[in-house]
C-alpha cells in the first residue's frame, strides 16, 4: 500500500515517458483486430438483422424489405414449432443450470475436505468439459436409445425382474424418443392466446439435460473450488469458535461468500445453453414432435435445407437477443470494475 502512494498517478508518468508516437501507434496496432471484429461481429449481425426483415425466402437472393418489415418475426412467433423451440431452450437452460451448478457446488464442497481419492474425483468430474459437444452427443445418444442403451442395462441388472416380481410393469423409459410433454402450464394459469405450444417439460429433453450436466458440471466445480480456496481459514476458524456447525458454516457464511462465483457460473453456462446447438444436433436432433429442437437447429434447418433465409436469420436474431439479455449486463458490470 505504501509503495502505491509514493507513485504519482499513472497518466502523469505516461505523459512524461511515453512518446507521442508510441501512444499513437497503440491504436494503430490494435486496428486490424478491431476492424476484423467490427466486420465479423457487428457488421454481420447488422446484415443478419437486415436479412431477417427481408423477402429472401428461396434460393434467389432478395434484399428487399418485407412489408410490413416485422412480417417474418410475426410469422415466427406464431409458429407452434418455434414456440416449442423457445420452450425447449428455457427448460434446457433452467434444469441444466440447476443441476450443473448445484452438482458443481456439492462436488466442490465435498472435495474441499480431506477425502480419499480427492484428485481422482476432481479430474474425472472435470474431464468431460474438455470434450467436444459432438463426442458427448454421439456417446449419450447410444446410451439413451431406448432399445439399445440404458434400458438394456436396467434389464441386465435385473431391475425389471424385481419390478415384475413386485407386480409392477417394467421400467423402460423411451428416453430421447418419448414424445410426451410433462405438465401443462396452460391448464394452471391462463396463457396468452398466441401460445399454441404445450408449456411443460418435454420428456425427451431430460436425457439431453443429463448429457449437458455431465459435460458442464465440472466447470462449475472448478470455479467453486477456486472460490473455496480463496476463502481464508480464518473465516472458518472464527465460525467454528462461534460454535457454528458445519452445515451452518456453509449455509450462512461460505455459500453467501461464493455468490460472485455462482453468478459467473450461471452467466457463462447460461449463455452456452441458450445458444446450444452441437450437443442436441448430434444427440437427438429435432426429437419426436420437435421435443428437443432448439432455435439453433431450427435456424440451420430453415436456412440451409429449406432455404428460407429470412426465417433462419430471424431465429438467429432471437437467439442473439436471449444471449444478450444475459451477457450485456455482465459485460457492462465487468467494464465498470476494470
Amino acid at each position: 500500500m505504501a509503495a502505491e502512494v509514493a507513485i504519482p498517478p499513472q497518466h502523469e508518468i505516461e505523459r512524461a515517458h511515453k512518446s507521442r508516437f508510441d501512444r499513437a501507434i497503440g491504436p494503430l496496432l490494435l486496428s486490424p483486430s478491431v476492424i476484423l471484429l467490427a466486420i465479423f461481429v457487428y457488421g454481420f449481425i447488422g446484415t443478419t438483422i437486415w436479412i431477417s426483415i427481408s423477402n429472401w425466402d428461396s434460393a434467389i437472393t432478395d434484399w428487399s424489405i418485407a412489408d410490413p418489415w416485422w412480417k417474418v418475426y410475426d410469422a415466427l412467433f406464431h409458429m407452434t414449432r418455434f414456440q416449442i423451440n423457445i420452450r425447449n431452450t428455457i427448460v434446457f437452460t433452467v434444469f441444466m443450470l440447476l443441476f450443473a451448478v448445484g452438482l458443481g457446488l456439492i462436488f466442490a464442497i465435498l472435495l474441499d475436505q480431506h477425502i480419499p481419492g480427492n484428485a481422482l474425483f476432481r479430474n474425472v468430474f472435470l474431464f468431460p468439459y474438455a470434450l467436444s459437444f459432438v463426442v458427448t452427443g454421439v456417446a449419450w445418444r447410444w446410451i439413451f436409445n431406448p432399445e439399445t442403451g440404458i434400458n438394456v442395462l436396467i434389464d441386465t441388472l435385473g431391475i425389471n425382474w424385481v419390478l415384475d416380481k413386485l407386480g409392477m410393469g417394467p421400467f423402460a423409459p423411451k428416453w430421447i424418443t418419448d414424445p410426451r410433454v410433462i405438465g401443462d402450464l396452460g391448464s394452471i394459469i391462463p396463457l396468452p392466446d398466441i401460445i399454441k405450444a404445450q408449456i411443460g417439460i418435454p420428456a425427451a429433453m431430460i436425457p439431453v439435460i443429463i448429457a449437458a450436466v455431465w459435460q458442464l458440471s465440472g466447470f462449475a466445480m472448478a470455479m467453486y473450488l477456486s472460490g473455496l480456496a480463496a476463502i481464508s481459514d480464518d473465516v472458518r476458524e472464527a465460525a467454528s469458535l462461534d460454535g457454528a456447525s458445519m452445515w451452518q458454516l456453509y449455509r450462512d457464511i461460505i455459500i453467501p461468500l461464493l455468490k460472485p462465483i455462482t453468478i459467473s457460473c450461471l452467466i457463462i453456462l447460461g449463455h452456452v445453453s441458450l445458444k446450444i446447438f452441437d450437443l442436441v444436433y448430434a444427440m437427438s436432433g429435432r426429437g419426436p414432435g420437435y421435443a428437443t429442437e432448439v432455435p439453433g437447429i431450427f435456424m440451420f434447418d430453415k436456412t440451409f435445407k429449406v432455404l428460407e433465409y429470412n426465417t433462419g436469420a430471424a431465429a438467429s436474431v432471437v437467439m442473439l437477443f436471449m444471449v444478450s439479455l444475459v451477457i450485456v449486463p455482465y459485460l457492462a458490470r465487468s467494464m465498470k470494475d476494470v
Binding site: V41, F44, F277, G296, M299, Y309, G312, V317, L320
Partner: peptide, 9 residues
C-alpha cells in the same frame, strides 16, 4: 454471440 447470428453474412 451465437454464431448462427453471423453465419449467413
Amino acid at each position: 454471440i451465437p454464431y448462427q447470428s453471423i453465419l449467413i453474412p
